[in-house]
């Protein structure tokens, strides 16, 4: 029990340090701007008085450490000030765009799980045989297609063949949930395809490794059928190693969503991000970047804890590797 507590404490401490580092990286990325930030925002036509006023307003005249600390305080209390281009609080802007980006990532994660698990199980039943070959070739090719290219091509195909215009269509989930899912389905598919291939490949390899393990032979010698062994022993064991891979997949799906939103013209965080970049709206930009990264920190943390719960070998004797 004591070991559990120290483990959780040390993990939480690590979580805090990572969050701090992430905030530092985000802040640093915006502080390395060569020249005057206020001038960059306002453009060359602004008068020196306007620039000075903005500098004062954004606190640019304060020392760097002070600016970081006040920014950090804002970041953790959810108050990152006003967006310079939208004239709205950064946090409310971000919240208003969340349904699209999170919906897209979540839907694509579902697609990844629903497609990669069955195909990996079928594929690893008879490695090298027909179905394995089919799935593997599909996997190889789809791994190589960038999500935004797939989006463009599927937009082309959908509009030419089915007369389905996916671009720019969106319904808010509170208004029409069915329509919301319907609009996000094609974008989610485009985000998911390469990651389906990645998960499939990882899962297949993991299942095959587990399959060659001795405990499978033990269970076989006890008279268990292949299917029972697959669900009772092989899948739980490979899940342990897949958890980490899935957390990385989730991060990639989120990254992919940001870009695919742009192709489908969906009002999500990705669009907001590009708009913020275009208008050099640094408060908004830093808010989006920090909150997305902070969310991933928590996802990785959750994955690590989950893995620890699943695998008794990780629970004890941590650090005693010698």
């Amino acid at each position: 029990m004591k070991e559990r507590v120290t483990y959780i404490l040390s993990r939480v401490l690590e979580l805090m340090i990572t969050l701090l580092l992430v905030s530092l990286l985000t802040f640093a990325a915006f502080s390395i701007i060569p020249g005057d930030t206020a001038r960059t925002i306002l453009g060359p036509s602004a008068s020196p008085e306007q620039v000075e006023a903005l500098r004062e307003k954004m606190g640019l005249n304060d020392p760097l450490l002070f600016r970081y600390l006040s920014w950090l305080k804002g970041a953790f209390t959810g108050d990152l000030g006003n967006s310079t281009s939208f004239n709205q609080p950064v946090s409310s802007l971000i919240i208003s765009r969340l349904p699209v980006t999170f919906g897209l990532s979540f839907l694509s994660l579902c697609l990844v799980l629903v497609i990669s698990y069955p195909s990996a199980v079928i594929s690893s039943r008879r490695p090298g045989k027909f179905w394995d070959q089919v799935f593997s070739v599909f996997g190889h090719v789809s791994f190589a297609i960038p999500p935004f290219v797939l989006s463009l091509v599927s937009v082309l195909i959908a509009s030419k063949l089915f007369g389905y215009f996916a671009v720019g269509k969106y319904a808010s989930p509170s208004k029409d949930f069915g329509q919301y899912i319907y609009c996000l389905l094609l974008p989610a598919f485009c985000v998911a395809v390469p990651k389906i291939a990645m998960t499939f490949k990882f899962l297949r390899a993991s299942i095959l490794t587990e399959k060659s393990n001795d405990y499978v032979r033990t269970s076989k010698s006890r008279g268990l059928s292949d299917i029972k062994i697959m669900f009772r022993h092989i899948l739980p064991n490979s899940n342990v190693s897949v958890i980490t891979a899935l957390s990385i997949v989730l991060s990639d799906l989120l990254g992919g969503s940001l870009i695919v939103e742009q192709v489908f013209n969906l009002p999500g965080l990705g669009r907001l991000l590009i708009q913020a970049i275009g208008r050099r709206d640094f408060p908004l930009l830093s808010g989006i970047v920090f909150y997305l990264a902070a969310m991933m920190v928590i996802v990785y943390f959750a994955a690590d804890v989950l893995m620890n719960m699943c695998d008794p070998r990780l629970r004890k004797n941590r650090g005693d590797s010698l």
């Binding site: 001795d214 405990y215 033990t218 269970s219 010698s221 006890r222 022993h233 342990v240 695998d311 008794p312």
Partner: peptide
């Protein structure tokens, strides 16, 4: 055969370290 295995014919193997499901 599955009915026989474990019931009438039992087996033990060389490597006891990995022969049990670790989870």
């Amino acid at each position: 055969m599955r009915e026989l295995r474990g019931k009438d014919i039992a087996m033990i193997f060389q490597e006891p370290y990995t022969a049990l499901d670790p989870l």
